[in-house]
Design a protein around this nucleic acid. Sequence first.
DNA 1: TCTTGTGAACAAATTCACAGCG
DNA 2: CGCTGTGAATTTGTTCACAAGA
Lengths: 216, 216
Amino acid sequence: MNHVPHKTIGRLSLYRRSLNTLLEQGVTSVCSRELAQMTGATAVQVRRDLMAIDYSGSPMRGYDVARLLSSIADLLDEPSGQRAALVGIGNLGRAIITYFAGRRPRLAIVAAFDIDPAKVGRKVNGCPTFPMQELGRVARRECIDVGILAVPAHAAQEVAEQLVEAGICGILNFAPAALIVPEDVFVEDIDMTVSLEKAAYFARMLRKKPGPRRRN
Amino acid sequence: MNHVPHKTIGRLSLYRRSLNTLLEQGVTSVCSRELAQMTGATAVQVRRDLMAIDYSGSPMRGYDVARLLSSIADLLDEPSGQRAALVGIGNLGRAIITYFAGRRPRLAIVAAFDIDPAKVGRKVNGCPTFPMQELGRVARRECIDVGILAVPAHAAQEVAEQLVEAGICGILNFAPAALIVPEDVFVEDIDMTVSLEKAAYFARMLRKKPGPRRRN
DNA sequence: TCTTGTGAACAAATTCACAGCG
DNA sequence: CGCTGTGAATTTGTTCACAAGA
């Protein structure tokens, strides 16, 4: 397992989700074609991705669901668990907290922050909320290393700097702004406007002529 | 403008956002390096993207903000406007409606749907809501061609089929499920779990050694 | 000297094609 | 056979390096 390509990481997360479904159903093995279909990938992609993490299946039988799951977990999960903090308790922030609540035990949102004192104090879906000033203290106390940014664009850069200051080294950015961060901090952007405009553009293209392919 | 690459579409949307900011500030021209910095791209990328849409700047002065904006709009916007419908009026669905409310006049969410009769009837942030049964009728009446899926994973495939049935040809999918759709329908996935796991993984990598680069 | 525009080199990601195993 | 694993080819996306214009 020398180096795992960027996109492979994303797909491994998808594979894991499907493998968990299979596990619940009592399915014990799966072949690349099936896993591909469940995740929207191709069979070769699945095999290449598993090659990247040095996982081997067996010809004719495919991959062992439970063993593969634990190989993926070895790569994606920190054994001691990882904690995330969310900043921006607006509509979107609350929806995000609710979305993740109890979903992944090894990666939980353990605190939320907001500038507005009126929004903090009580819990949101079990997640304690704090005023911005306490970000540094709480982040260090809870060993938080991922920050989720759900603040308006104009505040994003400033908050990102506070997150970095608080020792966070991964940011999931929902704000429509390009963050400037030190290069030892990773930023993953979710830009709903860009995604919607993309969907709209390709919808328009496809309504006319069946040219390019869907997805990605 | 023969063929515009997939990723270029996404970046054009980003450029537009920044150009609008510049326009408001009264800035009339911008060079590739500045636009790159504002959007997290590189200067060459900007120039290549603009090449792809046959837009030319002038040496030494750069690009004319207003003219470039209108070139991008020519590509991304349907002159008559495009309409989107959202399905799933939960926390996330409501947050999405609020997020987009009044943001892009040429691309608005004009209707929302839910299976639960208790959730429909009144408006959510100005957006009328309907029971699922009316999807087909409303979609056709309003000429909707983009669907936003904010339903639980187990309902995603069924709802996607209903969207396709209603004539939608672009889907923005927030549900953690791989949709199977006809190939003349475009799907753009926003998978918050995958994105968060990616951020967590690379955060972990970066905490150790300054190896890979941030962003995408 | 700053810019843009772009061929050419490069890198990343995907797909093809097929060897090899049970 | 039907499956995995993988070199090789291909496609896609990015960066380099530099000509040319103002």
